[in-house]
Simulated scan of single mutants.
Amino acid sequence: MKTRVSVALIAAVLVLYIVVIGQWAWLLLTSGRPAAIAMGAALIVIPAVGAWAVGCELWFGVRAERVGRRLEAEGGLPDDDVAVFPSGRVVRADGDAVFPRYRDDVQAHPDDWRAWYRLGLAYDAAGDRKRARGAIRQSLELESADRA
């Protein structure tokens, strides 16, 4: 719930930013001065790229959460007994200790979206966010093909 509130707040700030920048862009575009028009065009492009990037991240989060709920309903989430901090994050040493199990599962079943999702959770527990996102993305692709 805390994450959703944070995401909603960031999205609201982004919308406010886009509105304010859009007003400035309009003023610059309608000024008639070439330099101001160029700056106004940049003020439209840069927030548009930012909005697209945020939209992609939100869509990734929605899809990952949906697939995670599906895996949970199937009883397939990891059930390792690992220590966690009060914040809920896994103690890294414990995350590192269980990682080989999930890596080996993906190597044995490379077309199983469930194995990839669990590997993504293991990467995250081990503190490797980049690989965690990659494994979750692979899981989403495989799960999407599985549903089709």
Score class of each variant (00 low, 15 high):
V67S: 02
A51G: 09
A132D: 07
Q23N: 14
L43V: 00
H109V: 12
S87K: 01
A35H: 13
E65W: 14
G32K: 12
G50H: 11
W59I: 04
L28R: 06
G22M: 02
D124A: 13
W52G: 03
A38P: 09
R131F: 06
V62Q: 02
E57S: 14
K130N: 04
A35W: 11
L43C: 03
L121N: 02
G120I: 01
D111R: 10
Q107L: 11
D79N: 10
M39R: 15
V62K: 03
G22K: 01
A83K: 14
G127Y: 14
I44Y: 07
Y102Q: 02
W26E: 12
R92A: 03
A73P: 12
A148W: 13
G68Y: 07
Q138I: 09
A25T: 09
E57G: 15
V84Y: 08
A93C: 11
W113D: 09
W52D: 07
L14G: 13
V106H: 02
V13A: 10
G40H: 05
R137A: 13
W116I: 04
I18S: 10
G88I: 08
A42T: 08
L119C: 01
S31T: 05
L16W: 10
Y117F: 12
P47V: 07
I44N: 13
V54W: 07
D96V: 08
Q138C: 06
P100Y: 02
S6W: 11
S139G: 06
D128A: 09
V20W: 10
L16T: 08
I18D: 15
